[in-house]
Design a protein around this nucleic acid. Structure first.
Lengths: 205, 205
DNA sequence: CCATGTGAACAAATTCACAGCA
DNA sequence: TGCTGTGAATTTGTTCACATGG
């Protein structure tokens, strides 16, 4: 096996969702074709994606829902917990820190950072807002492994450099800025504005 | 020209961002290589992407920043305004309705819908929350062209069907659910959880 | 027998390398 | 001269079709 592509990994996440849904609905086994029909996916792609990581199906039968979900969680590394540090406690950072869908499961906000001295020391739920200087200590003490950048674009590169210097190797970047990643640091950009612009393209005739 | 792929279109959005940044910094002309170096992009890809829509560069020189930005806005359809209806006024819907980065520019929230009778009639800024039955009228009167789904997963398909029935043809789906799109309706899923899971994969050794 | 797992065919996207033009 | 625009080469991703095995 060479190296799983983001495309494949993202589909594994989707398959996992579908399996969780099936499990909730009491389904114990499913074939790739049934799953494809049910969730608008491609059957051969499901099989190819899964086969990349092992033989999880039963020929002539299909896949067992719970065991496969377990395998996918294990492949994706979701059998561990991941602490996240949010950098930039503005409107978006606050919303993310409070948003339950972002706290649930194996991802949990464990640290908050803002460079505005007026915000430092403030609380958000059970967490206190720290100044950037404390990032290394914060990361060390909380064991945070993911950085979440919700700073203005102009501050994005600086914030990235700061979390990387503090030992973070995986970053979710909500700032609409093109940042430079040191090798070994994984960055994912989240940018609904780009999605909106794609929709705009298709809406104009 | 056959049909621009989402991949290409999303890069055009990124190029536009970079050009806006260059413009702010007073740069009037830039070559594909300089732009690639500056923003961690691929020079040949910039040229291929742009060439798909016309000849915007000057051979031996490069691209003029402002005129190219204008062209990109025009290609993406950003010379028009787009009204958005948010369906599902929970934590996320409220945050999006309030989020300035989501209100600015050519995309504007013009309608709010929730099926909870206790929320209907409530205000959020200058907008009132409407019941789903009023979607067709709301869409007609506001001219909204984009639907934003911030409902629970279980309600996503119903909400999609409702906005489509009301005349919406482009949807941004924040619900982590696999929805069925009628042909002619464009759907983009926004799902930071999938990005987090990709990061988790790379973090586990 | 029937759905998985997989090589082979196909399609899409990216990179290369250079012809062509300001 | 130097950078764009572009066909050709390469790489990456998807679909097909069938041999394999529970």
């Amino acid at each position: 096996m060479t190296e799983a592509s983001p495309l494949t990994l993202n589909r594994l996440s989707i398959y996992l969702r579908c399996l969780q849904d099936l499990s909730r609905r009491g389904v114990e086994r499913i074939s790739s074709t049934d799953m494809a029909d049910l969730y608008q996916l491609s059957a051969s792609q499901i099989r190819k994606d899964l086969a990349q990581f092992g033989e999880f199906g039963i020929r002539g039968v299909g896949y067992e829902v719970e065991p496969l979900a377990y395998q996918l969680r294990s492949i994706l590394g979701l059998d561990q917990a991941y602490g996240m540090v949010i950098v930039g406690i503005g409107a978006l950072g606050t919303a993310l820190a409070r948003y339950p869908g972002f706290r649930q499961g194996d991802f949990q906000v464990v640290g908050l950072v803002d460079r505005d001295p007026r915000k430092v020391g403030g609380r958000l739920g059970r967490l206190v807002i720290h100044p950037p200087e404390e990032l290394p200590r914060l990361v060390r003490e909380t064991g945070a492994r993911i950085g979440v950048l919700t700073v203005p674009s102009s501050a994005a590169q600086g914030a990235l450099d700061a979390v990387v210097a503090a030992g973070i190797r995986a970053v979710l970047n909500f700032a609409p800025a093109q940042v430079r990643a040191s090798p070994g640091v994984r960055i994912k950009a989240v940018d609904p504005r780009i999605d909106l612009e794609e929709l705009a393209y298709f809406l104009q005739r």
